[in-house]
């Protein structure tokens, strides 16, 4: 028996229980993996052997499904915080864990953990699905870098969306703004000549550059720096989220 008296609150346990007791939450990681790995596998099965242009940069073929799966990852980040605002459970959450830093830290930790798990499984599945067709060179240090970056891209994107939802304090607004931005917004921006230079520094574009092997001419930063840029965005968003949470009435 545990004789030690429990004298503190357990924000992370609470967050995990919130996640596992709500089906629209715990199904999303599976959806993310299914989309990313499934679409990559389907495209490879259909074109992998016939159309070599698809795999000019082998990573492009491997991460093809990520374009779709990342929307689910972003949504998970939004939902982890947004459902508390949408349903009004935030008051109960903060009554249970009044220290807003501890509450928010638990949210970030759960988000990062789930993102990391999704990233590992997704990249693993994508690697397996493309092993026969893409032809990675394991001796190329870029390969390892692109794979590690692919894993880390997931928690960074998830935490970024979670933090921005905390700043917006509104699930609908976050879904309306962030999911189209992640899905096509920044890609569309990158197509506009004047804006392209600036759009390169947006978190998802910078982060995704780290997933490529080939250099894109004119990119003012390297592959690894791209991931660090995304991490900087995520940190800034996390800080802004904490500031909002601490300042505002719940």
């Amino acid at each position: 028996m545990n004789a030690r008296a429990d004298t503190r609150t357990h924000p992370l346990r609470a967050e995990w229980a919130k996640f596992t007791t709500l089906r629209p939450l715990w199904t999303v990681p599976f959806l993310a993996v299914a989309l990313s790995a499934g679409i990559t596998a389907a495209v490879q099965a259909a074109y992998g052997n016939s159309d070599t242009s698809l795999t000019e940069d082998p990573m492009e073929g491997l991460y093809y499904g990520l374009n779709f799966g990342q929307v689910a990852v972003a949504c998970l980040g939004i939902l982890l915080v947004g459902q508390e605002y949408a349903s009004g459970t935030l008051a109960t959450s903060l009554a249970a864990v009044p220290d807003r830093l501890r509450f928010y830290r638990a949210k970030l930790l759960l988000g990062a953990g789930l993102g990391l798990a999704v990233g590992l499984v997704t990249v693993g599945c994508q690697l397996a699905a493309t092993a026969a067709t893409v032809g990675l060179d394991p001796s190329d240090p870029g390969t390892a870098r692109a794979l590690v970056a692919g894993v880390l891209y997931h928690p960074l994107l998830l935490v970024l969306c979670l933090a921005l939802t905390t700043v917006l304090r509104n699930q609908t607004a976050a879904l309306g703004l962030l999911s189209p931005a992640v899905f096509l917004g920044t890609t569309a921006l990158a197509a506009v000549p004047g804006v392209r230079e600036a759009a390169r520094f947006l978190p998802d574009r910078a982060g995704q550059y780290a997933l490529r092997l080939a250099d894109t001419p004119g990119t003012p930063y390297g592959h690894t720096t791209g991931l660090l840029l995304m991490a900087a965005w995520t940190l800034a968003a996390a800080w802004a989220g904490l500031r909002t949470l601490r300042r505002e009435d719940a």
């Binding site: 229980a17 919130k18 007791t21 709500l22 629209p24 349903s87 109960t92 249970a96």
Partner: peptide
């Protein structure tokens, strides 16, 4: 102020977990 998607026990379980 309850999430409609949780069960009654599920709602109490996360509060108990905290």
């Amino acid at each position: 102020a309850l999430h409609p998607g949780r069960t009654a026990a599920g709602h109490l379980r996360w509060i108990a977990a905290s």
